[in-house]
Structure formats: C-alpha cells, structure tokens
C-alpha cells in the first residue's frame, strides 16, 4: 500500500539552553493509505505538538515529514497554502467553525477557497450531508447546533475537499458519550467508504478503540504501538487499557 505520511526522526524543542523541553524526542512512524490511527498519551506527552507539526501549524526543530512524498517542513507561502487547502483536513476539539456563517457556508468555504464552481459545491455538500446525517442542520448557525452536530459539520468541512490526510485533535473531547459514539461511527464510515486516511489524537481509550492502530507516546517518545488486527472493538479496548495501565497513573481519565 502507498505511504501517505512518513514522519522521519523529528524533534521539537521549546525554551532556551538553560531550560530545554523536549516536546518531541526523535519520533518516526509511517501511515499507509486508508489507515485509521489514534495517538494516545497523557497531558504533556507531546501528542498535540506532534499533530501540530504534521499539520504545519507548528515547525519542527529537526527531522523531516513527508506527505505523499513531499517534505512539508520546507513548504512556504503559496505552496504551504496550497498544501493545507488541498491535502489536509482539520478537525478540532472545539470545532473551530465560523460563527458568522451557516453550517452550509462553513462547509462551502473550504471548497470556495479552492475556486470550485457553485453547483459543484452544492452537489458535494448534499452528498456528504447525507453521509454524515446533517441534512437538517445545514441552514443553521453554529450557535444553534449541538456539540455533536457541530463536530459533524466540522468533519464534513474537513473531508469535503478529499484530502490525503485528515488530522483530528481530540475530536470527542467536548462531546458527551452518545455524540462521541455517533461521531466515531461517522469516522469509521469515512475511513471505509470514502477511503479517508485519519490521524487522531486522543487521551480517551474508548475513542482510540475505534482506530486500527494506536500509537502511545510518553515524554516525547513512542512508548508502544498496538494493532487492532482481527480483534473486536471490545478486545482492542481492553488491550489499550492494559497499555494505559502500564504507562502509569497519569491517564486516570482513560476509563
């Protein structure tokens, strides 16, 4: 299978010489096409920083990150904009929808930035809205939506441009368990039906159990990697909990 993402010995340091913090300390891994990966770790383990450098929000101190063969740590200006616009989709814990636009317009914005024609935009939004079950919410403003609906609108915005890689930062962090479940089912659907590659950061074992592979990070290093394989979701969840216990009590909220 094709490698979509290749992270090659990256490091990210904060601070100065006297007080150096290694947020990421020599991490390497690869993500294949149509994979669904969860990155787990305690607070301060560096998982969000890892996602930030992959998503070009932040810059690495050293090392290289390849997306579809291109080194994205070297991108600048318009190439960077083009990369973000065409090859990445973002989903955040706090949704990051624009309050001034309706759900429909929020989704359309991602396409409009790519200069796609209006009727094409409408066609694509109709399709994805049916897939994610947000047809009724399209004309509403974000403040009129529930958390789960908002996150599904945000997911629609992330997926609608057919990006190579979808990055999700604690997507269920602000949702109740029912909405979380619905959202994760949608993720699975996106992953299987639309062949989306998803990289998700979470500290929640339940959320992580939907992934096909879980990477555990501790103190900026990869601690362990487990694959779902042919396990059921329940068995995979138990395996994840085992590793969490192994890492230590810092993941209290994993249950």
């Amino acid at each position: 299978m094709d490698t979509i993402l290749k992270v090659d010995q990256i490091e990210k340091y904060y601070g100065n010489n006297s007080s150096l913090t290694k947020a990421i300390d020599n991490i390497s891994f690869e993500v294949e096409k149509q994979e669904f990966i969860a990155i787990m770790g305690a607070s301060g383990s560096g998982k969000t920083t890892l996602l930030n450098v992959i998503s070009t929000i932040d810059k690495v101190t050293s090392g290289k990150i390849y997306v579809g063969g291109n080194d994205i740590t070297k991108l600048k200006g318009n190439n960077l904009n083009k990369f973000r616009r065409e090859e990445l989709g973002f989903i955040f814990q706090d949704f990051n929808l624009l309050d001034t636009l309706t759900a429909y317009e929020n989704i359309a914005l991602a396409l409009a930035i790519q200069n796609i024609k209006t009727n094409e935009i409408e066609k694509r939004i109709k399709k994805i809205a049916t897939d994610l079950n947000i047809n009724d919410t399209l004309d509403k403003y974000p403040y009129q939506l529930s958390g789960g609906q908002k996150q599904r609108v945000a997911s629609a915005r992330a997926i609608i441009t057919n990006p190579k890689l979808i990055l999700a930062d604690e997507p269920t962090g602000a949702l109740d368990s029912k909405s979380s479940k619905m959202l994760l089912e949608s993720f699975l659907q996106l992953n299987q039906k639309m062949e989306a590659t998803i990289l998700m950061v979470t500290h929640d074992a339940f959320t992580a159990s939907y992934a096909k592979r879980v990477i555990f990070i501790k103190d900026g290093k990869i601690f362990k990697e487990i694959y779902k394989g042919n396990d059921t979701r329940k068995e995979f969840f138990d395996k994840i909990i085992d590793v969490v216990t192994l890492i230590g009590g810092s993941l209290n909220d994993a249950l």
Binding site: S55, I57, N78, N81, K82, F83, R84, R85, E86, F90, N96, L97, L98, L109, A110, I113, Q114, R157
Partner: peptide, 16 residues
C-alpha cells in the same frame, strides 16, 4: 485571531 487561524488552516492566503 481564531477566525483568521481557521481561514489560514483552510488554506486561504494571507493576502486574501
């Protein structure tokens, strides 16, 4: 600030 961050993440150029 947040709004601009979203624009940038969606790939809008700073000029726009």
């Amino acid at each position: 600030n947040k709004e601009f961050a979203i624009y940038l993440l969606l790939g809008m150029s700073k000029r726009k």
